[in-house]
């Protein structure tokens, strides 16, 4: 079964947007295609008949395959694959959680073509990359055509793109995410990611979690100046555990504090039972464990991040 007719490989953002405009909503953006093309196949077997007049492949856009440091930010272009991110010294150093998250997505052949921007556009709340991007306060550049031509893309907070499971604010038939960016983590700062999978059924995480901390000194027992915690899936959109973050800010991460933080997380998060994947009760059991695991890892790294 064929889900598209034409395939275009524009080399500029302007070209890509023009192509989308020409097809008047009947074409859509594709990057690696590993989610899109497999999902449409699954939809087909469910009796639906997804069809696009064309796919507009944005991975060939000049510069799209680059990971670059710009000012205090790291920018990831819309053609950057998971493999590139895992291998990037820049990301390993300044956003370890993202490298860790991207390293467990699919297998190597999929990571070699699947892009992080495409993963974000897919808008799954538990996508590993998304869980990591959430603690980095990442932003996405969304390009669209306006009456006056192509505007320069706006930087939109990542969380604003998510409207529900698989529902993105980015209309991929008219707009495209050209890049993602986040502040590079600096001294006394670090992040970590971990997740739990099940061996049967779909390859979606039962629970993933990422944390970021900044310490007041290069000492694991120093005060936590800043902290970010994200988990998925515990809500229809990516989740930041703000109550836990607030609780931890200014404290020292000793065992009673971590314990209390875990209790607070369990009290505030609302994971659900998903058929053939996990029960709510099981996810509740995992929340404190993943929090402790990722916080410890992030703290240890931060204490060594001169």
């Amino acid at each position: 079964m064929k889900v598209f007719d034409n395939y275009h490989l524009p080399t500029t953002v302007v070209q890509a947007l023009e192509l989308l405009a020409q097809y008047e909503g009947r074409a859509r953006v594709v990057a690696g295609g590993t989610d899109l093309l497999v999902d449409t196949q699954a939809e087909y077997y469910e009796g639906r008949r997804p069809h696009f007049d064309a796919l507009i492949d944005v991975t060939g856009i000049a510069g799209a395959g680059e990971i670059r440091a710009r000012d205090e930010y790291i920018e990831i272009g819309c053609g950057v694959t998971h493999t590139q991110i895992v291998a990037s010294p820049l990301i390993q150093k300044h956003a370890a959680a993202l490298a860790e998250a991207c390293s467990v997505v699919g297998g190597p052949q999929v990571r070699n073509v699947a892009t992080l921007c495409g993963n974000v556009a897919h808008a799954l709340p538990a996508a590993d990359g998304t869980v990591a991007l959430m603690i980095l306060d990442a932003e996405a550049a969304v390009a669209r055509q306006s009456r006056s031509g192509t505007d320069s893309p706006d930087w939109v907070p990542l969380a604003a793109l998510f409207q529900g499971p698989g529902k993105s604010a980015v209309d991929s038939t008219r707009e495209l995410i050209t890049a993602l960016r986040f502040r590079a983590l600096g001294a006394r700062e670090a992040s970590a990611f971990s997740r739990v999978m099940r061996p049967q059924g779909v390859a979606l995480p039962i629970l993933g979690m990422a944390t970021r901390v900044r310490l007041s000194a290069l000492d694991i027992h120093a005060r936590i100046e800043d902290v970010a915690i994200s988990a998925g899936p515990v809500a229809p959109v990516p989740y930041r555990a703000s109550a836990v973050e607030e609780f931890l800010r200014g404290k020292t991460a000793d065992q009673p504090v971590l314990q209390e933080a875990a209790e607070l997380l369990v009290a505030n998060a609302h994971p659900r039972t998903s058929a053939h994947r996990a029960t709510k009760e099981y996810r509740f059991e995992l929340l404190p464990m993943l929090l402790q695991q990722t916080l410890r890892a992030a703290l240890e790294r931060a204490a060594q991040s001169a």
């Binding site: 295609g33 093309l37 492949d57 052949q109």
Partner: peptide, 8 residues
């Protein structure tokens, strides 16, 4: 390496 079955 890529999975050529869904590689346009």
């Amino acid at each position: 390496s890529v999975d050529s079955c869904i590689y346009p």
